[in-house]
């Protein structure tokens, strides 16, 4: 995997959000439509291509917690709004590039992750996402590799499992697709020793289908 190899060669401890998603997408995990841009012009044309509304995120390998650092501009609806947002992000010198991203308006936020246990090896995590991940700790784990049964079973295990059903006029989450995501995450853990952790949070639900809105791949870099 080229993205992974290059990051390891550089000695990076994480993949950027965009690279994380490219990596995950190459393993069949649905992610937001997005492009990395360097100039205002590129931002404007990327936004037009992806379609409004748009999110802009300041990007750089060291920028893990974008919300706290005020590096996210949400719900941009016009070319002008995108250009203004681009300029304001660039005021922060840590912002090397800007991520132009499809805005997913899902009110259901889930988390999917990969962790490594000293005894059981790679483990897949699933649960309530967004700010609730830390507050409620409503998550379940499975040891990789996961079977279809394991994946469906772990979705049933969270206390807030009702969130997966039809909800406020929105369709139920497609559990088959979600199960495939969980199985794929487990496979990544088994296949790539260099991937130490994965954190997809939030995983939003768009028309019943999961989309990784933010993602972080943490590397097990020997140069650490």
């Amino acid at each position: 995997m080229k993205i992974l190899e290059e990051a390891l060669k550089r000695g990076d401890s994480t993949l950027s959000e965009h690279d994380s998603k490219l990596f995950l997408a190459s393993h069949g995990i649905p992610v937001t439509r997005e492009q990395i841009v360097k100039t205002e012009e590129e931002a404007a044309s990327a936004a037009a291509e992806i379609g409004y509304p748009i999110v802009l995120k300041g990007s750089g390998a060291e920028l893990a917690h974008k919300t706290e650092m005020n590096l996210i501009r949400l719900d941009l609806r016009t070319d002008g709004e995108v250009r203004e947002a681009f300029k304001s992000l660039k005021k922060n010198s840590a912002v090397k590039e800007v991520l132009v991203q499809q805005m997913v308006k899902g009110d259901r936020e889930l988390v999917v992750g990969l962790t490594r246990d000293p005894q059981f090896g790679p483990c897949v995590m699933f649960g309530l996402g967004g700010i609730f991940t830390e507050i409620l700790e409503d998550v379940s784990f499975r040891v990789a590799p996961l079977t279809q049964w394991d994946a469906e079973d772990m979705m049933e295990e969270i206390r807030a499992k009702k969130i997966l059903g039809a909800f406020r006029g929105k369709p139920a989450v497609d559990k088959k697709i979600m199960a495939d995501v969980l199985i794929s995450i487990g496979k990544i853990g088994l296949e790539y020793e260099a991937v130490k952790e994965i954190d997809i949070n939030p995983m939003k639900i768009l028309n019943g289908k999961p989309v990784a809105v933010d993602a972080l791949v943490v590397l097990n870099n020997k140069k650490d």
């Binding site: 962790t115 246990d117 005894q119 483990c123 991940t133 700790e137 998550v139």
Partner: peptide, 28 residues
């Protein structure tokens, strides 16, 4: 059991208290 040790950079790592993983593994 011995917990994963180091505080992890991502939320998944931080929350993977290994007793939770152990429970999951037993169940699985």
């Amino acid at each position: 059991t011995k917990t994963g040790g180091k505080a992890a950079a991502s939320h998944s790592g931080a929350m993977a208290v290994s007793s939770k993983v152990l429970k999951a593994a037993f169940h699985q």
